[in-house]
Design a protein around this nucleic acid. Structure first.
Lengths: 227, 227
DNA sequence: TAGCCATCCGGACCGACGGTCCGATTAACT
DNA sequence: AGTTAATCGGACCGTCGGTCCGGATGGCTA
């Protein structure tokens, strides 16, 4: 998702339709006007929907967020929500992406240890800390998203991106392990319901600490402790 | 769940109703007749529903298993399914329990290394192997169950039992770790969708091997390898 | 065998959901 | 002002999990 207000949309359904052969007939001046900017009302509505979603998320459980309710609270028709986000999963995904944009940028281009330059081990721990911070503050959203994605979770571009990053770091820090699977295992722990289950009201940062010590155990904590 | 054909039912809703104070009025000869055996047709219908469920599970994705379909295929009314299993989640849970009964018995009373007697480390690896075998053969069922349980997954008695066992073993094998969390992390990997995602058509046992090597890395593989 | 009663059966019914569709609307450009 | 294509919104659809209750029936007793 881009930072500016450009279109982006879902286009999964449309892609399918277009590949059906209808659009091949007039491939004229497509390139020049392509990706035309979002219309004003469309942009306004998108943020209204996003805000409504997070309000509902905050005041009730994840299953409290139905599209009907979101649309009503945003003062928008139901169709609008679907046109903008494609599906319930897409809506939650967009919100999640908004919350993790900073981390993503820090990871790809920020200063070490999150960004490039630090040893893999340090980057990995810093990354898990960052992910933990997001997850702790968005456990309900996370749970709702997992529920909505269901099977497709592992094909989700966002998941793939986190997994790729983590996988690279693991491969560098512990070349003897199956990096891909270890990365899946580490990410599997970021389950909305699990986070809520292991987070006592006091000590809201406990989850992140647990993840860190889990990672340390996995990497072999270099110094003592490894028994 | 008992092995014989006794009642067992759901009773979550009923328990709640009874605690409401209605049953306290006549606590007469309750103990003697309580838990009266299931009626013949009821027992027949239960296995019919279970079989129908696994047939649907086999021939379509997890979301292909709707109660309506199950009831229809079993030649039974919808109400019957709910009376017997309480909910969609309960139905899948029952099926899952049926598939893992052997492992549960082997763990609590069977011969080492699965059963008591072997070192914690060996028991843990054996247990994960057993769980892996079940999970590989029931990935779709697993995914459907997770989807149905949603939030309550971690309160599910079956999950709690696996978690308790694993937790004990981890605590014994690596007293320096947060056993409870590590157990959650290990179980988190048994995600139906993940299993399907990392299991190529050839090599169907790859998942279990991956889990085992993950566990070895976590426990510190004693010998070399720890870098 | 007849009769009785608790238990069970089954499918009509319900509210809610995710998702689609299309006539009406409107923003942006000429 | 006029044109056009993108957008809007809410009626509509099929399906789902779950409830309810009049009627059927199993199993026991006399």
């Amino acid at each position: 998702m881009r930072a500016d207000g450009r279109t982006e949309r879902i286009d999964a359904a449309r892609d399918r339709a277009e590949r059906g052969g209808g659009a091949r007939d007039r491939p004229e001046r497509v390139d020049v006007v392509r990706d035309r900017p979002e219309r004003g009302d469309a942009a306004r509505n998108r943020v209204a929907v996003l805000r409504a979603t997070e309000r509902l998320l905050a005041e009730g459980g994840g299953d409290h967020v139905s599209i009907d309710r979101v649309a009503a609270l945003a003062g928008v028709g139901k169709g609008t929500v679907f046109r903008r986000f494609g599906s319930r999963a897409g809506l939650l995904q967009a919100l999640l992406e908004e919350r993790s944009k900073d981390l993503r940028e820090a990871v790809t281009g920020g200063p070490p240890p999150l960004g490039p330059g630090a040893p893999a081990r340090d980057r990995l721990l810093a990354f898990l800390d960052g992910l933990g911070a997001i997850a702790e503050g968005n456990a309900i959203l996370l749970a709702a998203h997992e529920q909505a994605c269901a099977e497709d979770k592992y094909d989700d571009p966002s998941y793939r991106s986190w997994h790729g990053h983590l996988s690279d770091l693991v491969a560098e820090a512990r070349p003897d392990l199956d990096a891909g699977f270890v990365a899946h295992a580490l990410l599997a722990v970021f389950d909305g319901a699990l986070i809520r289950h292991v987070t006592p009201p006091e000590d809201p940062r406990r989850f992140t600490r647990s993840v860190r010590s889990l990672a340390l155990a996995l990497l072999g904590d270099g110094a003592a402790g490894g028994r």
